[in-house]
Design a protein around this nucleic acid. Structure first.
Lengths: 247, 247
DNA sequence: TGTTATAATTGGTCATACCAGCAGACCAGC
DNA sequence: GCTGGTCTGCTGGTATGACCAATTATAACA
């Protein structure tokens, strides 16, 4: 019987209680995605609290991604989405910037797995989609449209991960992709020559997927990630040199 | 130029603006963990908004795990923690229970990577620690202390992931481990015979780590995860049968 | 010096009021 | 028949001021 018994008593705020109640209704299926909740004033009256408490509860639920508030229209239960998850990750990563390499390693592990799964399960439509994304990226490389290249890159990885039919890995990978945004932008800006290499690497991944050649696929993904790693290091060096020159 | 231009215009609320401002102060280091923020009334006056708006902002920041509110004492910037991250995962998982297998696959990919990295970098102390955890688990298996087994299991995986020297993978794995808590409990409860198997699998992983034998390590981890998968399926079947009997 | 009573501070809650934007109904004009 | 304008009630967003309860700081006391 120990220590934990003397922790401070839980101090419920009304808004937390309201959060619990509403969350419970969502969990139990009484409120399905898209359903409209009663107006704030009604909620306040029904739960017997002031409107301000309800509003604070709504902010919390909003942060959890459980509801969507549309001014003038009402409050709606939300389609389960990865939004909140990504935000939480982004918050966590915000303070771990120096660990880009660690992050990349995690992403490599996940994407490797996603790719091998995708090789077993990918549909012809998805293969075509990937092919068109590669072609599109190649044209962007020619025209020098960086933002287009980035869009294609992201779409390629998204499609690939979704093809794994593992939504967790897809969500997680997408989150990590977001987290690497800054590094990616820096690489593309500082090292223009990587753009064409990127397209080639995507094409290699695509070909391996087409052949269902898993060893080749693993090589292609590993190479892709490794070259990104190298590029990041290079980009960091270069911007440091420039920093020295300018400072 | 396209489509994205016609998304709905952003609609700022004052509380969101306040969140941004305060978050910015935390990000930039002006507010360090443990620092006390001005009282709500001061914040309201300084930012030129009503106290109610500030309070809504505080609920959001609280949900993000960036601050801690102590009634009567004040508002404090919080030590960065994975708390919010885990909550976000828990929320996400709440509606995706059927995807336990997907989750397990993601964890397998990560832990595989963590283990191979750990094989290169693990210290003797950590190896000893793992050994003692395995021994401890074996004794718990004998005495039938389920909660002890679970503790050892968790500590084993934690130590292993930390030994990878990739904090990111370690955090991620720990989060996924938490997410599988329910399934794990169910397995241990419904299938008591898996307990000794678990200890053996851990010992196999430990031995492979000791020998720095990466192929054997990969086999051991894969086997460990695979047997957990099977056990979950079995546990689900059994509890469904019981459900049929009782219903 | 150490303890206790008291005051000030601070978050939690409530009530009320007003504004701005949405939704739907209704109507005129092409 | 469709478009666009207008009106109206509802809904969320914001502000204000008040009070409570718990914490903290302060002063008074033994």
């Amino acid at each position: 019987m120990g220590i934990a018994q003397w922790e401070p008593l839980p101090r419920y705020r009304l808004c937390d209680a309201a959060v619990d109640r509403i969350r419970q209704m969502i969990d139990s299926g009484q409120l399905k995605p898209g359903d409209r909740l009663p107006p704030e004033r009604d909620l306040a009256e029904r739960l017997g609290v002031a409107r301000s408490s309800i509003r604070e509860a709504l902010r919390i639920l909003e942060g959890m991604g459980l509801i969507e508030v549309r001014p003038g229209a009402g409050i709606f239960a939300r389609e389960p989405s990865e939004q909140a998850l990504r935000e939480a990750w982004a918050n966590w990563l915000r303070r771990q910037r120096e660990q880009v390499m660690d992050l990349l390693e995690a992403r490599e592990a996940l994407e490797l797995r996603a790719a091998t799964r995708a090789a077993e399960r990918i549909s012809l439509e998805e293969l075509e989609q990937l092919a068109s994304l590669v072609a599109q990226m190649e044209s962007y490389v020619v025209s020098g449209d960086v933002s287009g290249i980035v869009r294609c890159d992201r779409a390629f990885h998204d499609t690939l991960c979704r093809a794994s039919r593992n939504q967790f890995i897809a969500t997680l990978s997408a989150t990590l992709y977001d987290a690497l945004d800054e590094a990616r932008t820096s690489v593309f800006t500082v090292l223009p020559q990587v753009r064409s290499a990127l397209a080639e690497e995507h094409r290699a991944i695509l070909e391996a997927l087409r052949q269902r050649d898993i060893p080749a696929l693993e090589r292609a993904i590993t190479y892709h990630m490794e070259s990104f790693r190298k590029d990041i290091r290079k980009a960091v060096e270069i911007s440091q040199e420039r920093g020295v020159e300018n400072g």
